[in-house]
């Protein structure tokens, strides 16, 4: 039998657009910087040095120094790693949670479906930022609070999308035929549901990651997110704001990094072929 089958992947992506490649390239550059900077320019992002206050670029830190003489290169890389980590973790958990609840709701229907929809609607009633703030008031560790809070915000979109798609597919002849042929839920998910869901999930995931990064930066900027001296994009912006005259580049660096990250993610999400 294996003579007939070929080893081409089940969900052969039907080609990325140029826009999506551009987005991926930008994102890869950001990730590469975040990961490689500590190796190429080793410095402690918390180490202050009065000699370097608002110093310009040098060989040890090509992005210069902040008002406490800390290496901006090291701080930016650390801030990006933090944001990307939290975003990635939140996207993964919210996708798994949202899809699981969505498939369950569409598949079982009845009260399971109603309960899940009610839950999602109640979460949706709270603004995303507020949700993250509430969680951070309960959970002591800030990164953990961000992760949980963002997951609770982001899972709804996966849930709704999955539920709408699955409830359409589940009554289609294809799924009915597979059931009659004796296939179980795992097979139906793998062969019927996942190939339809996967391309949509990429879009939602990219948007979700952008939302997460923006939320972290926004809360940092209004000083209710990460606590100093932790390097974080929003915090770095607000810390450098008073020195915009003396060191405009030091202020622009975290802004630019945030902008490029969000641009990359949005290009990936929005560049799908119509």
């Amino acid at each position: 039998m294996s003579a007939i089958t070929t080893d081409i992947p089940v969900t052969a992506r039907s080609g990325w657009t140029r826009t999506q490649w551009a987005g991926t390239a930008i994102l890869m550059l950001i990730v590469a910087f975040a990961l490689l900077a500590p190796i190429l320019f080793p410095a402690d992002p918390l180490r202050q040095s009065l000699r370097n206050i608002l110093g310009g670029p040098d060989a040890a830190s090509p992005l210069g120094y902040d008002h406490l003489g800390r290496s901006l290169t090291a701080r930016l890389a650390a801030a990006l790693r933090l944001s990307l980590w939290i975003a990635a973790a939140a996207v993964v958990t919210s996708a798994v949670l949202g899809m699981a609840v969505g498939v369950l709701a569409a598949w079982r229907g009845g009260w399971v479906d109603r309960l899940a929809a009610l839950l999602a609607d109640s979460f949706l009633a709270l603004p995303g930022l507020l949700m993250v703030l509430i969680v951070s008031a309960i959970v002591p560790s800030t990164p953990l609070a961000f992760w949980i809070g963002l997951t609770l915000v982001l899972w709804i979109e996966y849930f709704r999308l999955t539920r709408a798609t699955v409830s359409r597919l589940i009554v289609a002849p294809g799924v009915q035929a597979s059931r009659l042929l004796g296939f179980g839920p795992v097979y139906i998910f793998r062969r019927h549901l996942w190939p339809e869901l996967a391309p949509m999930l990429l879009t939602v995931a990219a948007f979700g990651a952008a939302t997460a990064i923006m939320t972290i930066a926004a809360l940092g900027f209004v000083s209710v997110g990460m606590r100093p001296p932790t390097p974080e994009l929003g915090l770095m912006m607000v810390e450098m704001l008073p020195y915009y005259r003396e060191a405009p580049m030091a202020l622009l660096t975290p802004v630019l990094a945030t902008f490029l990250t969000l641009l990359g993610l949005n290009l990936i999400a929005g560049g799908r072929r119509a």
Binding site: T5, V10, P173, R191, H192, P195
Partner: peptide, 16 residues
């Protein structure tokens, strides 16, 4: 509509 849309027919038979 009676077959999984995204996989080759041989694969569908192989699965069965």
């Amino acid at each position: 509509s009676a077959f999984p849309r995204h996989i080759r027919l041989g694969q569908a038979l192989d699965d069965l």
